[in-house]
Amino acid sequence: MAGRSCKFLLALFIAAMAASPLALAYDPSPLQDFCVADTASSVFVNGLVCKDPAQVSASDFAFSGLQNAGDTTNAFGSKVTLVDVRALPGLNSLGVSMARLDIAPGGLNPPHTHPRATEVLTVVQGQMYVGFLATDGTLFAKVLSRGDVFVFPKGLVHFEINCGASPAVGIAGLSSQNPGLIRVADSLFGSTPAVSDKVLAKAFRIDAATVQRIKAQFATKK
């Protein structure tokens, strides 16, 4: 009986693993203390090649600049300063990155997604109205003040807008060394090559002339 029970439990374990083989698969996991990115390497892998440990220094694990306010004098009134593996080579294989978000009064960090990362945002100054859209179209949104935290699940469209009278600042943690960024409007109306006017007109239920006017606005930003 004991042997039969063990075989049954083993079968359940194998079935569970087969049903979700990628459940724990995100960024590459470290197999040593660190794998500082060798940005000079031309080898293409899923991540970045490790620098020779003998060539690693403390500066590979440090980044300076988040104390400086981002320039929000742009069409959106916002600026994201991203600290990913390209800015901080020591993040390679560790599965994390971070960013500073600056938003002027009335400014917006437009709807976007991070295809490879969940984001946790902490407001450190001002107020923000933030939210994300679930796959069924439900909006989860809330006004945040200093010290408040909000999480945006991996891959879901989300946004932040300054709803206060003074500049707003947030610090975000992301669960990938290279979270990626897809701005919804930019991707659809400013892509290269362009998405067909017919596709966009039908998707947004507008006419082709309106699509062309919107596309022209994004073309001027390139």
Rank of each mutant, 00 (worst) to 15 (best):
156 L>Y: 02
141 A>E: 15
109 N>M: 01
88 L>A: 05
76 F>A: 15
169 V>Y: 01
70 G>R: 05
205 R>H: 06
9 L>P: 04
178 N>W: 02
112 H>P: 12
179 P>A: 00
193 P>Q: 01
76 F>D: 14
151 V>S: 11
155 G>W: 05
32 Q>D: 10
89 P>G: 06
23 A>V: 09
132 F>W: 08
186 D>Y: 00
27 D>I: 00
151 V>E: 06
181 L>E: 02
155 G>Y: 03
24 L>E: 12
80 V>R: 05
210 T>A: 13
75 A>D: 15
199 V>S: 06
160 E>Q: 13
44 F>S: 14
210 T>V: 13
73 T>A: 15
216 A>T: 12
102 D>E: 02
84 D>T: 09
46 N>C: 13
210 T>N: 11
135 T>P: 03
110 P>T: 10
100 R>L: 08
145 S>C: 07
147 G>F: 05
86 R>T: 15
222 K>Q: 07
156 L>W: 01
129 Y>R: 15
160 E>I: 00
126 G>A: 07
197 D>L: 08
99 A>H: 02
111 P>M: 04
140 F>G: 11
41 S>K: 04
63 F>R: 15
177 Q>D: 12
93 S>N: 10
111 P>Q: 03
15 A>M: 08
27 D>C: 03
46 N>T: 13
130 V>Y: 02
47 G>F: 01
86 R>E: 07
202 K>W: 00
37 A>V: 15
80 V>I: 08
125 Q>H: 03
153 P>D: 02
173 G>C: 07
69 A>C: 08
1 M>W: 15
35 C>E: 05
191 S>L: 00
25 A>D: 12
3 G>K: 10
112 H>C: 09
65 G>H: 05
124 V>D: 12
203 A>Q: 14
145 S>W: 03
31 L>G: 12
65 G>Y: 02
222 K>D: 05
206 I>N: 13
141 A>S: 15
134 A>F: 00
83 V>D: 10
152 F>L: 09
216 A>G: 13
